[in-house]
Computed example of a mutant assay.
Amino acid sequence: MEFIKDSHLVIFNAAFDLRFLNAELNRVNYPSTVSDICAEVTCAMELAKSKFGVRKISQDADCLRYGIDISSRTKHSALLDAYLCAELFFKLLDDLVEPLKSTPQQNKHTPTKAISIPSAYKNK
């Protein structure tokens, strides 16, 4: 608790993470919530949704809009999420950094395979 006391926490999905963290504090009978301990808590997801005018967005989609490399994400990693959230937060605050208007495609589209038409349906 000393580590976060009077700090400014930036969390990508703060509502989710704070419920989890506060439940853990409650489980060990800690008398305060994370919001009581910290000077400020900022939700990077809400900041991004507000900036982009969208109702739903993921951390990966936000990162892609800002050109933040997410190629090292091969599985869930809290440490990687924290690094990406920090990088994203600073870009969200910087009005000189222009994000893409929409999230770029991550996977290339595969061409549609031609299907064979049974001879009974073929026209001469």
Rank of each mutant, 00 (worst) to 15 (best):
C85G: 01
L93T: 08
Q106Y: 04
K124S: 15
L96I: 11
V41D: 08
L64F: 02
D6S: 10
V10I: 15
F89V: 04
R55P: 09
L21M: 15
T33A: 11
V28A: 04
I37P: 10
A114K: 12
Y30C: 05
D69L: 06
S77T: 04
S32M: 09
D6Y: 06
Q59N: 07
Y30S: 04
I57F: 04
R19E: 11
I4T: 01
V54L: 13
E2R: 12
N22Y: 02
K108N: 05
A114D: 12
L64N: 13
N22Q: 02
K56V: 06
V10Y: 02
K113A: 09
I68N: 05
L80V: 01
L21A: 15
K91E: 02
Q59F: 02
S7A: 14
A23L: 12
K56Y: 08
S50C: 11
K5W: 02
A44V: 11
N107V: 15
S77V: 03
A14D: 08
A23E: 14
S7D: 02
E40H: 01
I4Q: 00
F90W: 07
K56E: 09
A23M: 13
S116R: 08
V34G: 02
F3K: 14
F12M: 03
A78F: 10
A48P: 13
D60P: 00
R55N: 14
D60E: 12
S116N: 10
A120E: 10
D36E: 15
S58V: 03
F16Y: 12
P118A: 13
N13L: 12
D81Q: 02
V34F: 01
K101M: 10
T103N: 12
S32P: 00
E87P: 07
P31H: 09
V10H: 01
V41N: 06
Q59L: 13
S119W: 13
R55K: 14
S58K: 03
I115M: 07
N29P: 00
K122V: 15
E46M: 07
S77K: 03
Y30D: 05
D69F: 03
T110N: 06
F89W: 14
P118W: 10
C43W: 03
P118N: 13
T112F: 00
D17E: 15
F52K: 09
C63R: 01
C63I: 11
E24Y: 05
A15W: 13
S58P: 03
N26M: 07
T112P: 00
P104R: 08
L100P: 01
H109V: 10
D69M: 00
F52I: 11
D69T: 05
N26H: 06
R55A: 14
L92F: 12
N26Y: 04
A82L: 05
I70V: 12
D17N: 02
D60I: 11
N22L: 04
A86I: 02
S32A: 07
I37T: 15
C63T: 07
R27I: 04
T42H: 14
F52H: 14
I11M: 05
D6R: 03
I37K: 03
R73E: 07
D94T: 08
P31G: 11
E98P: 00
I115N: 06
D17H: 14
L47R: 10
D62Y: 06
F89S: 01
L100Y: 01
N26D: 12
N29I: 00
F12N: 06
Q106F: 06
H8V: 02
P104F: 07
S77A: 06
K101P: 09
N13W: 13
M45R: 10
V54P: 12
L88V: 03
V41I: 15
